[in-house]
Amino acid sequence: MSDSGREIEIEVLRYHPERDSEPHFETFRVPFAHDTSVLEGLQYIKDHLDGSLTFRWSCRMAICGSCGKMVNGEPKLSCHTFLRDYYPGKLRVEPLWHFPIVRDLVVDQTDFMEKLEAIKPYIVRDEEKPVSEGVYRQTPAQLARYQQFSQCINCLLCYAACPQYGLNSDFQGPGILALLHRYNSDSRDQGQARRMPIVNAEEGVWSCTLVGYCSEVCPKNVDPAAAVNRNKVNSTMDYFLRFLRPRGASS
């Protein structure tokens, strides 16, 4: 791992629910090479210096969404953030902001999971088409309407970036609104009317103050800010259309 013989200081937030009343920082010195990721730096600490350091990780190729951390105050996937980019300075690693800490760098993601379940993140049909009838047609243009928003890996970086979510976690937040928009924009889906109450509510799109930092930190270019904005238009439309046709009619 250390082909260059260089070492970097990593300052890590520590918190243990069984013995700490509040978090503190602990510093480790970690050897690194050109391709050593922040995640590998943390793994080095766990393997060789202190086996009690606690963090989530899994795929180490930026697709599972497990390893988000604050690195020098910015939300990052630790597997594709590299120690070389912080050297010769030091590195401060914290759990993702705006979530309760379970232990060390592990946050409680229950709130996100509950919100995800509530938005009906699946295809809703008035009538199911039997599998024997084959696939729905969906042109590349129709696919393109939602494809970007289907790239969300649920890594929660956008929640750590979102000042509104930090102030009030009732806000649905960027990732959830992007996923909601992903299903609403899918030509196979007929569930938009059932999802609009979530969009329209105070905790829906209208809580967003257009900071746009969510899109900046997104490692998959989902651009949740764009999804939120399009839903402001949808929400306004929905408000007016409500007077024109009965609730639940196809939208």
């Binding site: 699946y122 599998v131 024997s132 696939v135 047609r137 969906q138 042109t139 129709q142 696919l143 899918d186």
Partner: peptide, 20 residues
């Protein structure tokens, strides 16, 4: 049939120009 089922469930399969 499983691939078709996934399609019905929303899997964003890559498409041909005609939407298949």
């Amino acid at each position: 049939e499983e691939m078709v089922q996934l399609e019905h469930w929303g899997c964003p399969w890559s498409r041909k120009p005609d939407g298949d």
